[in-house]
Structure formats: structure tokens, C-alpha cells
Design a protein around this nucleic acid. Structure first.
Lengths: 142, 142
DNA sequence: TCCTTTCTACGAAGACCTTCGTTTTTCTCC
DNA sequence: GGAGAAAAACGAAGGTCTTCGTAGAAAGGA
């Protein structure tokens, strides 16, 4: 019996809702984001060989994800079909924001600085990034 | 700022298991990065009021951090003085790399894209970031 | 119908995390 | 040298995470 989970509703009466995914949960959400909709079996099959889990383990993780509100399920026949309620974009934002706050003194520029320093970014990639910034600068002007 | 970064002399016999800091550990490392060197008491005092811990809790966390190789200690009198062995820069890199891999398909440009989309970055910040990219583009040319 | 397969439900084991209290050690100052 | 204060050492309690096994329900075919 799942109550309808609204996409990004902040849990009203609860305090520290689990905001972040654990290692395995992220792995599962990634599969779900790729698949769109999936049964336990689908997700289990989609796991990288190195990360294969027993069927019941996969089922447990999905049940937990639903408990935590990250996915919903609908029953089709005897089988649950799962779907992410949290979008990848949203979770990317949330994670980035967290990283920026916790590790970069809330200074996104510092984060980018480290990124371009660390990675051997190709000229092409750097150009892409620059284009993004320029676009944003232009858009903001308007 | 800037700690003397010792090349990883840590984790002698350990597996590469513990690569990331837990929530509380990160809080402690942040204090240590700020303080440079610190006793248990120093770190405990430096904690934000909302995150205060009992003295023995603080001592435990530091002991664990040392076990995991993230800090070293020297004894001065009866008191341990702790110092980070892992630099903040290094940990920033490690975290960013992880985030990029796990959540951005190893595509740093996508990460930056999300960042500039999400944050209400000031024109100034955007300019800073752009300057970073430009500098890197210039440097790479050489 | 009844057997087999496939699913859900549940709980347990073991690892790790967080917090703290108790005990032991160590230093300092009369 | 002994009392008292501060620190270290230790471990336990309660929580979460990860993994899986067992039990039982559901569906369908012989």
C-alpha cells in the first residue's frame, strides 16, 4: 500500500528525511533512470556483472527506495513495476549543492576551478563549458 | 592556508576500502583543515553549536580518522595533536571525480552545465568561472 | 486440481556509524 | 607524594546499510 508520493514534495511533518541515496541505492536509481520503468528482475538484470545481487536483495533495495519515497510502484498481475519519482536532474542538483556547501565553502566557482584543474579536459570539453557560461551570461543579461 | 601534504603514507596494510569521509568525519576534517593543527579540545570547540559533541565523542572521531589514515597525531605531553594527512584539495578532487563518475556519466561538462543552470550565479561568479576556463584553454595551447 | 515457477514479505546477520559513559593514565601543583 | 583535573582508552548501545534465505502467495500449465 503506497500512498501517492508527489514528485518532490518535502515531507511536511517529518524532520530529517533521508535526502541522499546510499551507494547501492544510487546504483539502483541509475538503472531506473535508464530504464524508465522496471520490475525487480529488470533492474537486477541491468546491474553490472561486478555488482550483481541476489534477486531478493534487489527486491529489498527497491522496497526500501519506495519506503524512502524515491520510487513508486504499481502492481501488474503479481509483479510490481517500479518507477523513479526523483528525477536524475533533481538529484544531480541536490548532490552538487551539497558538495558545494560541504566541501567548497558554497563557492561554485571554486568547484569549477578544481574540476578544470584536475581533469585533463580536452579543448573541446573546455570549449563546451565555456559556451555554457557564455550562454548563461547572455541569458542573464536579458 | 595550505597544509603540508604528505604523499599517502597511510593505509599501509589496508585495502583501498575507506576512500570517503562520513558526515561527521568530514565535519571534523573541515575543522582540521581550518585549524591546521589541533587537539581534541580545539576541534570540539570549533564545532558549530548545532553540531557540538561530547569530548569523548570528538576524541573517538579523531581516533577513527587516524585509524583510517586521514590524520596523524603527535603527542605533546599527555595530549595528542592532530593534523590532516589528506589535504582538502585532494579530497575535493576525489569527491568531484566520484560525483562526476557516479552521477554525470563521467562527463564534467554536464556537471558544470547543471551547476550553472541551478545556481543563481551572479554575473561576477560566471565571469570568474569563464576566466578559469579561458586560462586553462590558453595554458593548454602552450 | 496440484505442481512448478516466480513473485512478494519479512527478518536476520554482519558490517559500519554515531554518540557517549566509564575506566585508566598522565600531568600539575601544593 | 598525593589529590584533583584533564586526557586517552575502551567498549557498549542504538542506529543504518547491505545482503541474503526462508516462507508464503499468485499464476498458469499438465
Amino acid at each position: 500500500m503506497g500512498q501517492p508520493e508527489r514528485p518532490d514534495a518535502e515531507m511536511s511533518d517529518n524532520k530529517k528525511k533521508t535526502q541522499f541515496l546510499t551507494e547501492v541505492e544510487l546504483e539502483f536509481m541509475t538503472r531506473l533512470w535508464e530504464l524508465g520503468q522496471a520490475t525487480v528482475r529488470d533492474v537486477q538484470d541491468a546491474l553490472a556483472p561486478a555488482k550483481k545481487l541476489a534477486y531478493t536483495s534487489a527486491a529489498t533495495i527497491l522496497r526500501i527506495l519506495e519506503q524512502k519515497g524515491f520510487v513508486t510502484s504499481t502492481k501488474q498481475g503479481k509483479t510490481f513495476i517500479y518507477q523513479a519519482t526523483l528525477s536524475k536532474d533533481t538529484y544531480q542538483s541536490r548532490s552538487l549543492k551539497n558538495l558545494s556547501e560541504k566541501l567548497f565553502d558554497n563557492t561554485p566557482a571554486a568547484l569549477v576551478a578544481r574540476l578544470v584543474d584536475d581533469y585533463d579536459l580536452t579543448e573541446e570539453t573546455l570549449g563546451e563549458i565555456r559556451a555554457l557560461i557564455d550562454k548563461r551570461l547572455r541569458d542573464d543579461k536579458r
